[in-house]
Design a protein around this nucleic acid. Structure first.
Lengths: 158, 158
DNA sequence: CACTTTAGTAGTCATAGTGCTCACTCTAAT
DNA sequence: ATTAGAGTGAGCACTATGACTACTAAAGTG
């Protein structure tokens, strides 16, 4: 088995089974997992300790619909930046709490920023704030009209 | 308090506190949460039952680094589609397991698809498969070079 | 205003789960 | 053949859970 759960190592079939079951029911007990997966309780216990441990693959996160925190709108903002002051830029962008993710991508645009907001005006304000971040030269905003496939990971655990 | 946790309702301060603590430590016990947040055990128990309950705001999901399941590369693919056969298209795209999310967006591109893959060749294969989905007329691929700000939600729980 | 509803607190209880050991087995690698 | 790593099943003391109680406080209704 390929079980060493450290950076760069893969999850084996048992890890995936456990994580999949946990995705179904995040607060399932160890005993329940063991029983429903046909494993010994100690085994699940040990796996979980590794998965959640210091250099494990921290395995869960909150999945709050942005609407539940007053920000039902989503937008994708792409931004072109001057490479010079990159670290300062990252700091500036990080401070915008509406920013949910920021990726550096290949292609015409340098940054790919995902944002949640209360309404259209709010998105406008966020865009303005982004324009004021050090190094940002241009932005382009796309509003998310529909979640065609909501974010999913469990299909990767097979 | 604004506590009815149903669709369209907001999380109140207590819900947010609990979820934030849970984001830190997904497997924290109810007793621990109660103690560290200065609430009665029964209160946390009741809140959690609602949050995770049938019409609660299902609150956690697995957060597996795609590298841990053999797909260290990420890409954003934008696709233009013919509106006609939309439902069929969604079905086709859903069947591609490398697709992690698919959003309908405003602007020039109709779909905004996030993909994980084993390597560049794998991304190429996924792109080819997307092109073969009913209704897709054009795609454009951006490789994710760096996670400038990793996906984060907890800043919204304040 | 009195009344009802809803949420929280602090306490109890029986049941169940946890984290930990141990001795044993199985498998793959040396 | 021997060793190292993982899984098993069992047992242990300890803790957490879920469900209950009686009581309090705040908010909404007639």
């Amino acid at each position: 088995m390929t079980t060493k759960v450290t950076q760069g190592t893969l999850l084996d079939a048992t890890d995936k089974q456990i994580l999949r079951a946990l995705d179904d029911d995040p607060r399932a007990t160890i005993a329940f997992l063991a029983q429903s997966l046909g494993l010994a309780r100690g085994t699940v216990h040990a796996r979980l300790r590794k998965l959640y441990g210091p250099d494990g693959l921290a395995a869960e996160t909150i999945k709050v619909p942005p609407g539940a925190v007053g920000r039902p709108l989503r937008a994708i903002i792409t931004a072109q930046v001057e490479q010079a002051q990159f670290e300062e830029l990252v700091k500036d962008v990080s401070e915008i709490e509406e920013v949910v993710e920021c990726l550096g991508v290949s292609g015409n645009h340098d940054l790919h920023i995902e944002v949640v907001a209360a309404d259209a005006e709010d998105i406008y304000r966020v865009t303005q704030r982004l324009m004021m971040c050090r190094g940002v030269t241009r932005t382009s905003t796309m509003i998310v009209l529909r979640e065609v496939i909501p974010r999913r990971m469990s299909q990767l655990l097979r």
